[in-house]
Design a protein around this nucleic acid. Structure first.
Ligand code: SF4
Ligand code: SF4
Lengths: 152, 152
DNA sequence: TTTAAATAATACCTGGAGGTGTCATTTATG
DNA sequence: CATAAATGACACCTCCAGGTATTATTTAAA
């Protein structure tokens, strides 16, 4: 199952933050997010706690509690989000996955792959939630899908 | 542990093919490859069988047997190699990992990410083992490392 | 002050990628 | 033919990302 770039957890984090960016001042409950994104409820709860510990969102406990984006949308890049789910391995990595280069001279992939990595980093660094908010009509699955999974 | 592009198995396949490209006519035993790449021996054996079933290499059984690249180096692209280890998921995939798009209008990442995917595909499709062979001095770990792991 | 609605903490379960162990089969060579 | 050196087949183990289950804590509001 090779060739993925993001883990499922990272994808979840991206979807969640993108969804919450719809209204950056609103306090979203885990249930609100679940209803729209249908990420497995318990796992979603776990991720919300992690996101809040990361500082990207703040949590409010107790009745009518929930989560809110903690800073200006223009200050949150997609790279910031991908980083909370795991370590950004793409930066110091050889195309072949060698820990230290096996070759005396640079192989043909070295600079080509560096360029790929750079383009990924560029797009993740330069795209903010604010830009994302301006595009796309955010229906998520609630309108698109008639699949209703049970919460528990 | 997000952000990887290739699975370990795919990386192994790339290293193996790249190594065997040093001498495309030579019959390499699994042991030869192990001595140079130090991929866990039993797993390496398993992968060699898979590679040979894929048609990229042929296997010769019996004493003095081994493996040999099955066609011209210029006919084997890196994409061909990455494909044998798993399905090329990057092609039909949304940045957020949605199976079907959640939005009515394209989000800000849609075309940016398509460009990233395209650049990855370009480099994998256009780089062949032949090109790889021309660059890099192939020492692999045998010269670089003094770590000798036991085979069994 | 009691209740209900929310998050937090913690432990556990599961499937699959990566890795091992064992035996069977093939074939060159003495 | 007998042996040794190679690959093939197949079952098993291990670890961890992803997913569940349960109980504790916080707090608004009836
Ligand atoms: S030269 Fe090739 S093998 Fe060496 S680090 Fe760069 S990509 Fe990896
Ligand atoms: S528009 Fe955005 S959400 Fe929709 S498929 Fe493209 S990248 Fe995914």
């Amino acid at each position: 199952m090779s060739f993925m770039i993001f883990s499922k957890t990272t994808e979840y984090a991206l979807r969640i933050m993108n969804f919450m960016a719809m209204d950056e001042k609103k306090l979203y409950s885990a249930n609100d997010i679940y209803e729209n994104l249908r990420i497995p409820f318990r796992y979603l709860r776990k991720q919300m706690t992690i996101l809040s510990k990361s500082g990207l969102i703040i949590s409010v406990q107790g009745k009518n509690g929930g989560y809110r984006i903690s800073k200006s949308l223009s200050e949150i890049s997609l790279l910031d989000i991908t980083r909370v789910a795991g370590d950004n391995k793409i930066n110091n990595e050889c195309f072949f996955g060698f820990k230290s280069c096996a070759f005396e001279k640079k192989c043909a992939m070295h600079y080509k792959w560096a360029a790929v990595r750079k383009s990924i980093n560029n797009v993740l660094t330069s795209t903010t939630l604010e830009e994302l908010k301006k595009t796309g009509t955010h229906n998520f699955i609630s309108k698109n899908s008639l699949i209703f999974t049970k919460k528990d």
